[in-house]
């Protein structure tokens, strides 16, 4: 398995555990409030954004992209 795939799977598992017990339990409090949101809410948003950037990075580094001529619109 490539290093890229290992890294992806590791971070994916960390994010998944961050969304449930036990990861989320560490960030389940109300305080500190960040950007007006309680920590419990802010943390879920951080995980959502992290999952987005993880897959975006995985897509951008995908070695099978060799079809620049295929149109997207």
């Amino acid at each position: 398995m490539s290093l890229r795939k290992k890294f992806f799977i590791t971070i994916f598992i960390l994010i998944q555990l961050g969304l449930i017990w036990p990861g989320y339990a560490l960030f389940s409090d109300i305080y500190p409030m960040i950007l007006g949101l309680p920590l419990s809410f802010f943390w879920v948003v951080v995980m959502l954004v992290s999952a987005f950037f993880l897959l975006l990075w995985y897509y951008l580094t995908d070695p099978t992209h060799q079809n620049p001529k295929s149109s997207e619109s």
Binding site: Q16, F41, V45, M47, A51
Partner: peptide
């Protein structure tokens, strides 16, 4: 806060389809 589960499952739920 129970409602955050709706955001949570969608955060990773679409990844398999990739």
């Amino acid at each position: 806060a129970a409602a955050f589960y709706i955001i949570s499952y969608g955060a990773t739920g679409m990844i398999p389809i990739y």
